[in-house]
């Protein structure tokens, strides 16, 4: 029983984080049909903001808000630096500029901060554990679950009930038509990048909370998770991204529990093979995105 509880908590907390990562990526992709390679660096930015503000005497929560704010800011900056100038030219051009921008941010962190890990301030509660039905689990896993439930619900509300969210969904299927109804393109795109940055910021704090330090390459794993989860889930569907995130977490956790120590090192390779199998079966991903839609 304790084992089952442990397993479920692990899947849900990892899946919640994965789902948020994937969601932040797919929000941009859904609207612009463009992949943001610099997405992982938003998590890095959140981490370094925490590190840099740790010297101050600000309360932790203020630092966290600051970190999320910086991630939002850098999300919008990504649009201006890597997307806007080449958006109309080609899909590959944007892939390349965002990849270059990702390298730029990482190397700026290397140059101006340090190649070595830096400590990130975390409240006491992140390192505590509780016992639930006999299963000893870190409190931060529960925080992650709670945060992802709240955020997923908030995103769902935003996308379903607010004019901005509905306009964003409309723009995702047919950008030009949305503009012809008066929805400003720049507002939609900036909102998408801001939302993406917001999700990256929050998930960044939760993610960094697991290890307590930040390095320039911290964004790679979340980026990879987001990539795989969105490909499984179906690239253009927001629910797909969430499903993909939880499924990936289920695969990873199951492998964590079943693989021997020797094989565990290859976990990513096993996960990837499974993903390839899923894609052989459904090349479009599990959930199809909105029907039509051309790129702008």
């Amino acid at each position: 029983m304790a084992f089952a509880i442990q397993f479920v908590i692990d899947v849900l907390s990892l899946g919640g984080a994965y789902a948020l990562m994937a969601l932040g990526l797919v929000i941009i992709y859904g609207i612009l049909r463009l992949v943001n390679f610099a997405y992982g660096e938003l998590i890095m930015v959140a981490g370094y903001t925490m590190y840099l503000s740790s010297g101050s005497s600000l309360p932790w929560l203020v630092m966290a808000v600051l970190a999320v704010g910086m991630a939002v800011l850098f999300g919008i900056l990504t649009d201006y630096a890597a997307f806007r100038p080449v958006r109309a030219k080609s899909v590959t051009a944007v892939l390349i500029t965002s990849f270059a921008f990702s390298n730029l941010l990482q190397n700026a962190a290397l140059l101006f901060i340090s190649p070595r890990p830096r400590n990130v301030p975390l409240p006491e509660i992140f390192s505590q554990t509780v016992s639930i039905g006999g299963a000893i689990t870190p409190v931060r896993n529960l925080i992650t679950i709670a945060a992802s439930i709240v955020l997923l619900a908030a995103v769902a509300f935003l996308m379903r009930k607010t004019t901005l969210g509905i306009a964003m969904r409309a723009a995702a299927t047919n950008f030009t038509m949305a503009r012809m109804l008066g929805v400003p393109a720049n507002l939609i795109i900036s909102s998408a990048f801001a939302l993406s940055g917001f999700l990256a910021g929050v998930v960044g704090i939760l993610w960094i909370g697991r290890i307590g330090t930040v390095v320039p390459g911290i964004g790679l794993e979340p980026l990879l998770v987001a990539f795989i989860a969105t490909v499984i889930g179906g690239m253009r569907s927001l629910p797909g991204a969430v499903v993909g995130g939880f499924l990936l977490a289920l695969i990873d956790t199951t492998l964590n529990y079943t693989l021997s120590q020797d094989l565990l090192k290859f976990r990513d390779a096993f996960t990837f093979s499974l993903v390839i199998l899923i894609l052989l079966w459904r090349p479009e991903g599990l959930i199809k995105g909105p029907a039509s839609g051309q790129r702008t």
Partner: peptide
């Protein structure tokens, strides 16, 4: 299987493939 994916999906899985080969 990767070459059957849509363009963007093919590109990002090639990235995942790099990470896997490295691992």
């Amino acid at each position: 299987p990767l070459m059957r994916l849509s363009d963007a999906a093919a590109v990002i899985t090639s990235f995942a493939l790099l990470v896997v080969l490295y691992t």
